[in-house]
Design a protein around this nucleic acid. Structure first.
Lengths: 343, 343
DNA sequence: GTTAGCACTCTTTGTGTGCGAGTGCTAACT
DNA sequence: AGTTAGCACTCGCACACAAAGAGTGCTAAC
């Protein structure tokens, strides 16, 4: 990475911040004015030419001002930007609002996504906690009517899943007891990854005449375990795509990408850094080549459980957004961990 | 409503269907050809001029073909259109896919929305069953950990709601029993509209020293009753807005409308007909002035419980969509009713 | 290394022209 | 009276061209 003189850094910072704020290319005169006319616009033009050569700036066309290139944003984020600090009131507002959902992880992450979309005017994406290594803590069967019951599965990492099961036969106390015995023997304390459909099949074989009655319940348990392992992706603020004129060209492709599901899920589960900023083509998927993604992991206890973040144009207010997302992920992690520790 | 000669009806039908299919204004020659050149284009032009005068057709500009006006679509839907009949395989596919969610009404309607969005390439909106007159059938408390429990409320109209509650004190058998007693005495068999926060407050007063322990649970019950009364709106296929070029102008406003929530909810709860088609300015909200909304109610037992339908451009394949939505609403109703009757 | 001055480039906006599609009207026909 | 052929007309679209404005790049001087 080539070294930049202090003045060039200043110029890059001014251009980046002005462009982020206004969306207009920045000309040499404007910079000159912002620097108090300490140096002339010609000098700045020389520096800008150098910055273009080095790849940090781009010009939409010859007679326009300059805008940051992808590399320019990257340099800004890595070296020039001073992180904004969230006000105590902002922090409190977020925390209090989320606190009420701390018992329901899935809902908590959905709401966190909504908040983030609201705060950032971007598309917010969040994943519910998932953990292929989670251990089943308990399974409850709640009879709802003659033929239906709810099954609730509680696992480590604060994960909670439930489903409603229909049975062809009446669900009575006997059946509940058989179910609890099975749970006690085969499920509780086991890793969710062990409870696959084949496993259920071998288990079922040993049940004798209860097979037909129990199998819907056991299949439901297997489905719930599957749900624990799988990431559930929440999308919020899709309408914000249209807020950003620079995305409107890609809007269609982006929307398609968001709804295709799998690539988005991959992206959320594969990023390595605790907080990952991918600008433009730094993104793995080419649908995002004009977008920036900022994602943070959140941890329950000492395990990374999921991610939350945003997708927006490359022209983003990084200085505000990065700390906001970092804070939000922190709150989510601590709320979930807290709930867990209280058990 | 002025009478139309048979030929004018035919011309209107041809224009409407061609325009729906192609999106291009239809000229006199094309119609002439489609009618097997039985009459000349000049005659058709005369008729078209009349239809414009009567308000059924519009012309984007003098030298373009004609397109149906709002009134034209209305006339087409009311008098000219022949409803498409869903194939048995289509019917079966929809039914089988939805059947698996019949125990969870909220999920069922969310999935039904997804299916509808997929089938129609429009924005699909659905409401979960809600009923201010619903009667509480039972309430269950499922202890999850020392400090958390899930409360499940089952009401008439097949409504099922649940929430997780945190308590500062340990949730033991005693507390569960007190809770069940309260449910038995004050909640079960009552109308959900009776269980308001003030009601809880008066109830709490009679609890003596259990007040602080019980109040989070009772508040949760009140919240769940509130949720039973309130319509929960599911939005699906928002990306489809961008599929329709004629909406792209309004896309921003439409997205805003969809996310504002309340007006959308009003629209869904207020339409009178079992199946309601509102074309353009027939819609109550001016954000929808270039859109068509098609909504159908679905009934659980003999009560209207919710709605499902679509929002799209006025240029819609009415002949396919109306029967599809009608069928879907029927399936939802019968699935929910069935589940209910089996109890 | 910095600056003033100026020609140059490129976008934006407005205007004019030709082309094509489809109409509206008139006069003739059945 | 209803239908038809013929033709002038209108309008949108595509394209070209010119003028204005913004900002640059370069050169020569400081």
């Amino acid at each position: 990475m080539a070294q930049l003189t202090e003045r060039k850094q200043l110029i890059l910072a001014i251009i980046t911040e002005r462009y982020i704020a206004t969306g207009e290319p920045v000309g040499s005169k404007a910079i000159c004015a912002q620097m108090g006319n300490a140096i002339s616009s010609a000098t700045i033009r020389n520096d800008m030419a150098d910055l273009v050569e080095m790849g940090y700036l781009a010009q939409p066309h010859t007679s326009a001002g300059r805008i940051p290139s992808q590399a320019g944003y990257r340099y800004y984020v890595d070296n020039l930007m001073t992180n904004y600090e969230l006000g105590i009131d902002e922090q409190a507002r977020i925390k209090i609002w989320l606190q009420s959902f701390s018992g329901e992880p899935d809902k908590l992450l959905e709401k966190a996504g909504s908040i983030l979309a609201e705060l950032t005017n971007c598309v917010a994406v969040s994943t519910s906690p998932s953990d292929a290594e989670a251990i089943i803590k308990r399974i409850e069967l709640v009879p709802l009517s003659k033929n239906t019951a709810m099954i609730v599965l509680l696992a480590t990492s604060g994960i909670l899943k439930s489903a409603v099961v229909r049975s062809d036969t009446e669900i009575n106390v006997d059946i509940a007891e058989v179910f609890y015995n099975i749970c006690q023997t085969y499920f509780n304390g086991r890793n969710v990854s062990d409870i696959s459909i084949p496993f259920i099949q071998t288990l079922v074989a040993s049940l004798g005449d209860k097979v037909f009655i129990m199998s819907p319940f056991l299949c439901a348990v297997a489905d719930l375990c599957e749900a624990v392992k799988n990431t559930e992706v929440h999308l919020k603020g899709q309408n914000n795509i249209l807020n950003h004129p620079e995305l409107s060209e890609d809007a269609f492709g982006l929307m398609g990408f968001l709804h295709r599901g799998t690539p988005l899920e991959n992206m959320l589960t594969s990023h390595k850094n605790p907080l990952n900023v991918a600008i433009g083509t730094e993104n793995t998927y080419r649908e995002l080549k004009n977008s920036t993604t900022i994602f943070s992991k959140y941890s329950v206890g000492d395990r990374d459980s999921g991610s939350i973040g945003i997708i927006g144009p490359t022209r983003l207010d990084y200085a505000h957004l990065i700390p906001t997302i970092r804070y939000l992920a922190g709150v989510i992690g601590s709320l979930l961990t807290e709930t867990l520790d209280n058990e």
